[in-house]
Design a binder for these strands. Structure first.
Lengths: 248, 248
DNA sequence: TAAGGGAACTTGTACAAACAAGCGAGCCCT
DNA sequence: AGGGCTCGCTTGTTTGTACAAGTTCCCTTA
């Protein structure tokens, strides 16, 4: 059962994406949309709130809402899972475990995942036949057995863990910066040592807030970019000081 | 006049940040919060929705809400304006225009800003005395005079343009990736040619959706990172294919 | 002609009520 | 002891109403 406001949001998003409401144009008023869909104004407001949160629509008191963009914004899953993102965009991709072993957690990992041993996995992923992403992931102790049971060439770890252990990645925190390729990075990604990599460090938890993994993912420069739309009202991406001068 | 739900949100956020509700703990139920603040349930829902959007709180049907994090998330302005971000975080910073001239727009710029001449500004910014950020910004024709009127060592362009022209940057689209430093980048930022830079390309518009600027900002590696919190429900940061194989 | 003052429209905030849906704990039965 | 079930609690969805606040545009007035 899909909620009413979601169906209205889907329909509106579709109209934006197909150009019925081009970029810069005004959206119908809430009253108009409410009548068209035979819904209460509150329901319509929830629907457009979805589009505002996606950055497709701009909204301010007193003025009609306007269309800001017409690019589909992807889901949490696609941000979180390389495989789901690549599949949703129709890319050819592979994955391969290079190394996998248990070890004591680092200080930073212990703070997030707890003091028990973590499962350290080094995974190389390729897009359109070329190596693109190197993942260094530390899995929490309690999920380690399920990860070890996966085949080394497993396409989507996220989906496999859901199927085998019922695990759902629900919340994530991501830190994005640029680093230069180390010796191992360079060898596995097929770039020169010192060449730029886009790094995404992330920590994810289950619905209950239980920590699942910490990861250091490094993308070959030029292979992927992260995109965000924001507005004065609300945004969640923030700039943070790195550790150049500030020792964090 | 601050909205009721915002005051409730502020109070709740404060309780989370000060540890009254530690990470992993349950938040009071909506009914409880409603009674405590003598507000309707809907108003309380609006308040917690703010915190959910900030990534501080996780929410799912049937279960009590839980605290996910306790780091303050910054505002749109701080993401958009280097000066406002640096000031809010108590850093020492400077800015200096290196070069400034009018020129015809590139194809990409013309698509966003229109066919008229743009004002191209090259600006170097430093943090704690070290050069950290190189901004290459193209301002739309209509705002160019106001930008040219600014002093070359202007600290905050965003604020100066608000004061002088009443300009408000309201919506932005950002694309984040890693590139290697070119000759000019290297010289001005004081790094070796080819060393990694974190690049943020952005396009911003006014409230009315009128394009203001396109910019290519390059941060020295290690100086800043971008941070995002997201959840299965909603997120706006997405991964995008770069132009390595896909010619975008 | 230009400035000023509304009036109509549109979005934002707040309240109240009802039902749906999911979670968790405790209870009962085997 | 363990498994299954029910019941109460909690969050999600929807409707309706009322007023506040900001925008837009037209019309009046100087």
């Amino acid at each position: 059962m899909v909620a009413r406001y979601e169906r209205i949001a889907d329909e509106l998003r579709d109209e934006i994406l197909t150009g019925v409401h081009p970029v810069g144009a005004q959206l119908p008023s809430e009253a108009e949309l409410a009548e068209r869909h035979r819904a209460a104004r509150g329901t319509v407001r929830q629907a457009v709130a979805v589009l505002v949160a996606e950055g497709l629509v701009g909204s301010r008191q007193g003025a009609r809402r306007i269309v800001l963009g017409n690019a589909r914004s992807q889901s949490f899953a696609e941000l979180h899972s390389f495989a789901q993102w690549a599949r949703a965009n129709g890319y050819r991709f592979e994955g391969q475990v290079i190394r996998q072993h248990r070890r004591p957690p680092s200080a930073a990992e212990a703070a997030r995942l707890g003091p028990q041993e973590v499962l350290d996995v080094l995974r190389l992923r390729s897009l359109e036949g070329e190596p693109v992403l190197l993942e260094r992931t530390a899995y929490a102790h309690w999920i380690a057995p399920a990860v070890e049971a996966l085949p080394p060439e497993c396409e989507s770890v996220t989906e496999a863990l859901y199927d085998s252990a019922g695990l759902v990645f629900a919340y994530g925190e991501h830190l994005i910066d640029a680093v230069s390729a180390g010796a191992q990075d360079a060898r596995l990604l097929g770039v020169r040592r010192g060449s730029p990599l886009l790094r995404q460090r992330r920590a994810t938890t289950t619905y209950e807030g239980r920590p699942v993994e910490c990861s250091d993912d490094r993308y070959r420069a030029g292979s992927v970019a992260f995109s965000i739309r924001n507005s004065l009202g609300a945004n969640s991406l923030v700039r943070r000081a790195g550790d150049l001068h500030f020792g964090a």
